[in-house]
């Protein structure tokens, strides 16, 4: 990607994100009445994060196996109640351990 493309991508991303926040903040007074659209927007953050994580996490490391293991340990750690940073550390240690083992073996 060249610098010009970067600038255009950044402009589009930052511009759209800003307008989504600023325009309703300034203009709109009422609440969204439709239960369907309120529900839809409530689900969006979670479905977006899920779609971005799987299967991308399998390809974020040197081999699919360590990425898949990281996903597994992260889910388990989260089910056991670990917070944001705790779960992230568990995922990192999993990859470090498995990639390290593979280098040795």
């Amino acid at each position: 990607m060249n610098f010009r493309d970067y600038c255009l991508f950044l402009l589009v991303m930052a511009g759209v994100t800003y307008l989504l926040r600023a325009v309703p903040f300034v203009l709109l007074k009422g609440k969204i009445k439709s239960r369907f659209w309120r529900s839809f927007l409530a689900y969006v953050p979670y479905t977006v994060l899920a779609a971005m994580t799987v299967p991308a996490i399998f390809y974020s490391t040197d081999n699919k196996f360590s990425g898949a293991c990281a996903l597994l340990t992260a889910v388990v750690a989260s089910l056991f109640g670990l917070g944001l940073v705790g779960v992230a550390v568990v995922a990192c240690l999993t990859v470090l351990g498995i990639d390290g083992l593979m280098m040795v073996v």
């Binding site: 953050p45 994060l49 899920a50 994580t53 992260a74 992230a88 995922a91």
Partner: peptide, 12 residues
């Protein structure tokens, strides 16, 4: 690099 994915998991 998997830290960010780990955090996503921790949110979802």
């Amino acid at each position: 690099g998997v830290a960010l994915y780990g955090m996503f998991v921790a949110i979802v």
